[in-house]
């Protein structure tokens, strides 16, 4: 009996070793994409030169140093941090809502961030004299948290089921979009341009300080998510069974929703609206490593980061000399990827 027990446990460990290899492969792909993102732009640099510059900045000429450290490094790092944050947010939302189509956009959290940013842009003159760089993300964050709280309260008043939450979220999504349109209608030409540009998604506004903030929040939320990885895993088996095992499902859902609103708001506050990464990233991760969340969560972070890094690369390569807003690229690439995933899954089942 003991030998057989070891045998099953050993089989499971071997199964997990494959998952670790896949995670390592994702990490390698991510590093490659990151390096290519650094090397690509209006002036292309050889990878060797980029690496040498990163190791010894003083050896670079002044022009390349500015391009590499002030422009491309924040841009490429921001793609990783925002992609990772959206991947983690989408993965957890899909689990707690038991809905494979859930993403930060489903519950209106992303739309709330856009509304918060639009409010700051339009009413900037009436707000306290706080730097725009702080006020804009703050507005996005406050709105995202407020809408999450509203969805949770409405959901709790009507039983708190995941379907109820999704329905309220979708209803709020339409209302929030209408409010953004109203603000656009009322805004002057300058504010309107800013809102439109924000809603297209753009990594070009990123600084290393912004990157540090998004990466810090991502790290914090990732640690918290990994601490409840088994609870989230069991939730996939069924809410009633998870509850009977002592998991407080309602509390878990609320914790995840608040954390997702934080991740989404902070990620989108500096770069604007970026869709599909939070939806498609977790799907790819699920196909690769399954739904044991100790592997699924890191894989979702890596897939989200890789998707946005590749989108960043594409945004600089589609039209030479011009950076296409990354939100446009993720939507254009994300839709066919999503359709392919759905068709693949349907034919597999």
């Amino acid at each position: 009996m003991t030998g057989a027990a070891l045998s099953l446990a050993a089989q499971y460990r071997r199964h997990n070793r494959w998952r670790l290899i896949l995670l390592a492969a994702l990490m390698l792909a991510l590093l490659t994409s990151f390096a290519a993102d650094l090397a690509t732009g209006s002036a292309n640099y050889p990878l060797r030169e980029v690496f040498a510059g990163l190791v010894a900045p003083s050896a670079l000429d002044a022009g390349m140093r500015v391009i590499l450290f002030d422009v491309r490094l924040p841009y490429a790092l921001m793609a990783l941090a925002v992609g990772g944050a959206l991947g983690l947010a989408g993965a957890q939302l899909q689990t707690v809502l038991n809905n494979p189509l859930a993403s930060p956009f489903t519950l209106g959290i992303a739309a709330a961030s856009t509304l918060g940013a639009a409010l700051v842009i339009v009413f900037a003159h009436h707000l306290p004299p706080i730097p725009h760089d702080i006020l804009l993300p703050l507005g996005a964050f406050v709105c995202a948290v407020a809408v999450t709280a509203l969805v949770l309260l409405l959901g709790r008043a009507h039983g708190g089921g995941s379907d109820t939450l999704v329905l309220f979220g979708i209803a709020l999504l339409f209302a929030l979009e209408a409010l953004v349109w109203l603000l656009q209608f009322l805004a002057d030409a300058n504010a309107l341009e800013q809102i439109v540009f924000w809603s297209m998604g753009n990594l070009g506004r990123a600084t290393l300080t912004h990157v540090a903030l998004v990466a810090g929040v991502l790290l914090l939320c990732f640690i918290m998510a990994m601490r409840r990885a088994w609870a989230l895993t069991l939730l996939r088996g069924g809410a009633a069974q998870a509850e009977a095992l002592g998991i407080r499902v309602a509390r878990l859902n609320a914790q995840v929703l608040v954390e997702v609103s934080l991740l989404t708001a902070v990620a989108l506050a500096f770069v604007g609206t970026i869709g599909f990464v939070g939806l498609v990233g977790p799907h790819i991760a699920r196909l690769l490593v399954g739904e044991q969340h100790r592997f699924f969560l890191p894989a979702s972070v890596l897939c989200g980061a890789l998707m946005l890094s590749l989108a960043s690369l594409a945004s600089k390569s589609i039209i030479p000399g011009l950076i296409v807003p990354i939100g446009i690229v993720t939507a254009l690439v994300g839709v066919p990827v999503l359709i392919t995933l759905i068709l693949t899954r349907r034919s597999a089942s």
């Binding site: 038991n98 088996g237 739904e291």
Partner: peptide, 10 residues
Amino acid sequence: PQAVGLTVYE
């Protein structure tokens, strides 16, 4: 238990 990508063992 839901039909998900979770193994029996885990």
